[in-house]
Design a binder for these strands. Structure first.
Lengths: 228, 228
DNA sequence: GTATATGTATATCATTGATACAGCGATACG
DNA sequence: CGTATCGCTGTATCAATGATATACATATAC
């Protein structure tokens, strides 16, 4: 008789469930199908997970592991707003790449219930907004900003999953809209803003020093001319 | 024996299903429970709806009727952006007031599937963005703007349902962020131009290089903090 | 060597979506 | 008037599914 260590069987059950979910995203899966895939009977599954929800929770946990791993791949570059942008794109990319997981993680709509593991990325996000706030770059409360980012990010991702259609332009538009909203900046007016700052800097050369001011102005001109 | 006209029984089945859904939002409901509530057996239900999904579709249809009725109560006042704001708030209010319906209407996440009836309010929304575009008040394509509004509106509503917690401030913040984004106007409390430039630089670190960008941002922050 | 814990199988439940089949009443038709 | 067809409904039954009671095996602890 083939023997497996306990952890092995448990892991294989989660693997099998994850496979079934990935094969039919959004659909229900049968516990018996999971057991059959592993070569085990129902009571074994119940021994490890107690209920179907228990198994789902374990799968969701693994989903968040994958999600955070994918996010961890991109090291933070120090600029919180930049990291928020990267995090947004990673979030959407994960949802589209793993709709089955994502649906369980963020797509189960039931009043008063959300997986505890959601707190992990939320905490990360609040860290970034707090950092941005500390740098004086937020126009709103950092916690509210984090919530703002999250709902919009989820909304954009769920919609793309439901429509089974990727829409990078929409994602980018919503993303920039959110960032403008929380930073209090207006994307349409960046050009004139650059000019305004150039005037500000040139009128106060003593703040940064003459050489630095000159360099700053040169950079701002490049920014203005090359990015528009 | 009590007699009902056919339409009566059909309507009462939808009513009963709607009641059960409203009583346990997000939960599954049993066809037998629906039948018991009406005093009828399963084949009758199947005669009218063909399948559980058929009944759900009918309930969703009724949900959109209620939704559009609630929206119709507020007559359009001619200003498309104002109407978009009012529509946003009506959308959120409906979701919170009827989480059971809303979950069926917008909360069922399955790749490639969404209720046909969603097209009714979507069409309405696109009418408003087209109107706004015709008045030269949109900075982006009206269809994209409508999609932008919709995903954010749904995201904000679903989140409040899931958290079982109303958050008017968040809803308003996201709403204004979206409107600013599609109209290209600055949010109410515009921060200094310096912030706008900081965000411009941070979103294009490759233009000047990462190190230079970081230095630039540091200078800009000093400029902002010391000159104000 | 016995005892306890862990892991697994057999067998069985209750619930649930779905259907086959039959019956009843009303309306249509010759 | 008689019959036929159609709309609606009940009885009975399926198959799938989540869940559990019970028992047995193996291993480790004492």
């Amino acid at each position: 008789m083939i023997e497996h260590s306990p952890a092995d069987t448990r892991t294989r059950l989660i693997d099998a469930a994850a496979d079934l979910i990935a094969a039919a995203p959004g659909e229900d899966f049968s516990l018996r199908a999971v057991c059959d895939a592993v070569g085990v009977k129902l009571p074994t599954l119940y021994h490890f997970f107690g209920s179907k929800q228990g198994l789902i929770d374990a799968v969701v946990e693994r989903g968040f592991d994958m999600y955070l791993e994918a996010k961890g791949a991109q090291e933070p570059n120090g600029d919180p707003i930049h990291d928020i942008r990267a995090g947004w794109d990673a979030h959407v990319a994960f949802g589209i790449a793993h709709p089955g997981f994502y649906t369980l993680m963020y797509g189960k709509v039931r009043p008063g219930y959300s997986p505890d593991a959601q707190e992990r990325p939320s905490e990360l996000l609040r860290g970034l907004t707090a950092q941005a706030a500390a740098q004086g770059r937020l126009a709103v409360d950092p916690v509210q900003a984090a919530a703002h980012i999250l709902v919009a990010n989820i909304g954009v991702t769920l919609r793309q999953i439901i429509l089974a259609e990727r829409d990078d332009a929409l994602s980018a538009a919503v993303r920039e809209g959110v960032i403008s909203a929380i930073t209090g900046t207006a994307p349409a007016e960046t050009r004139s803003a650059v000019n305004a700052v150039i005037e500000l800097a040139s009128s106060h050369p003593e703040t940064l020093g003459v050489a630095e001011t000159a360099l700053l102005i040169g950079w701002l001109q490049r920014l203005r001319d090359e990015e528009r």
